[in-house]
């Protein structure tokens, strides 16, 4: 997540012309990447929630029993 976001911020900081490139009429590369950062955040958090609720919690329960 931090890689995606800081990649984006560093592009904003150091390579403005690249982000200003138009992908298609009305859509610059910067706006496309910005929207993608939000979508990546969705995918990452929900993947984690699903993984943790099924696998991680089960392992924790086992650890608790071994007290």
């Amino acid at each position: 997540m931090m890689v995606a976001y800081f990649g984006f911020i560093l592009l904003v900081a150091f390579n403005k012309p690249l982000l200003g490139t138009l992908v298609t009429r009305g859509l610059s590369l910067g706006m496309l990447l910005g929207a993608l950062v939000i979508i990546v955040a969705w995918i990452l958090t929900w993947t984690y929630v699903r993984w943790a609720n099924t696998h991680y919690d089960a392992s924790l329960a086992k650890l608790r029993e071994r007290r």
Binding site: M2, F8, V37, A41, Y48, V49
Partner: peptide, 20 residues
């Protein structure tokens, strides 16, 4: 324009950090 969106995106990416 685009500059305002930097705030939107920055405010959102704090959430995965909170989560992890």
């Amino acid at each position: 324009g685009f500059d305002g969106l930097i705030y939107s995106i920055g405010w959102l990416v704090g959430w995965p950090i909170v989560m992890f």
